[in-house]
């Protein structure tokens, strides 16, 4: 891809990001109650102190000015103080972020590792038993609420079989010093395979729960686009060249079929990000999603605001990444 095309695409993001910031800003204007009271919580304060705090927080300014202020702060990752933690919001979020990144990446990996091959096999063996099974599983996967699936998995693998832990990221005594914050990486860096396994056992159920709906969707898209690709002349020609069947399927059919799959995968990461809240709640996963849910109930609005903004920006950037990936997969696509 040409660097100028990438730059152009990045510039197109500006209005979207501004719009997102505006929506998040307005969202929090809708909160009931006085932010000053919320900030103070149970602390006692004189009317003068309250007034000073109000000025400090910029609440006496007109709305447009406050929005510009909010933008400036957001650009420097200054989201104010977390009401509950009495610490900068950015710090609190940063602390919880690795857990969520690890969970999301694992879910994505599972979704791709299950969804894409299953879609390919279903298309190649069209109307065979794998295809039928995949269709049923795909439909069930998108029809199942994540929290319910998580509970079923806990009942089966934790309560009934006792194979996997119910919640948390790692057991007592297995902790390792944080480096990246991703436990699967840190345990390996620390050279503790037992801890690695422990972290993996904790990660498995939440990641499967989070990834299954996406796997189902990827499977359906891959199947459809693969069927389409298999009908193309270039597949016939590749076969006529005497290439091995695997090579025809993977290098010729799948490679072209992946274009729509990547688009759907990017859109579906939105489901993954939203699913964070649900899955982290079900499995007591100490990540950003749970932090946000807690923040809602403690009316920790600066935190919720910052997290919603972060999720939205991440989502937009992931979609950009998918667009770039398209140009790599398909040289005809121009950004």
């Amino acid at each position: 891809m040409r660097p100028s095309a990438l730059l152009e695409r990045l510039l197109q993001l500006v209005p979207v990001l501004l719009g997102i910031a505006l929506v998040v800003f307005l969202m929090m204007q809708a909160t009931p109650g006085d932010p000053v009271e919320l900030m103070l919580g149970d602390a006692l304060a004189t009317p003068e102190q309250r007034e000073a705090l109000r000025r400090d927080m910029g609440l006496d300014r007109p709305l447009p000015e406050r929005f510009l202020h909010f933008l400036g702060n957001a650009a420097t990752l200054d989201f104010g103080q977390s009401f509950h933690h009495r610490r900068p919001v950015a710090d609190v979020i940063l602390e919880r972020l690795p857990a969520t990144i690890e969970l999301t990446l694992a879910a994505m990996a599972i979704a791709i590792a299950v969804g894409v091959p299953l879609g390919v096999v279903a298309a190649v063996r069209r109307d065979g038993w794998i295809d039928r099974l995949a269709t049923i599983l795909g439909l069930a996967g998108v029809s199942m609420p994540g929290f319910w699936l998580g509970i079923l998995l806990i009942l089966l693998f934790s309560v009934q079989l006792g194979w996997l832990p119910v919640s948390g990221r790692i057991g007592f005594g297995a902790e390792v010093p944080p480096v990246t914050g991703l436990l699967l990486v840190d345990t390996l860096l620390a050279g503790r395979p037992a801890s690695f396994l422990e972290a993996l056992r904790h990660l498995l159920l939440p990641a499967v729960t989070l990834g299954l709906a996406m796997a189902a969707l990827l499977m359906r898209v891959t199947r459809t686009s693969m069927l389409e690709a298999l009908r193309q002349d270039y597949v016939t020609f590749a076969t006529a060249k005497g290439l091995p069947r695997r090579r025809v399927l993977i290098r010729h059919a799948l490679r072209n079929a992946l274009t729509p799959t990547v688009t759907v995968a990017a859109i579906e990461t939105g489901t993954l990000l939203g699913g964070n809240m649900i899955v982290e709640t079900v499995f007591g996963w100490p990540g950003l999603g749970r932090l946000v849910v807690e923040g809602i109930f403690t009316r920790n609005y600066p935190l919720v605001q910052a997290a919603v903004l972060l999720y939205a920006v991440t989502y937009v950037l992931l979609n950009l990444l998918a667009d770039v990936l398209q140009t790599v997969l398909n040289p005809k696509v121009r950004l």
């Binding site: 002349d233 270039y234 020609f237 060249k241 005497g242 290439l243 290098r251 010729h252 072209n256 040289p331």
Partner: peptide, 30 residues
Amino acid sequence: LRGRAIAITLQDALTALNPALTVEQQIVET
């Protein structure tokens, strides 16, 4: 047999050639 003993060219090269692979890749793999 395909490609080695008996080869075929299709009607429209635009659809018969893989849009995602270079000319070299498509010759070499054969």
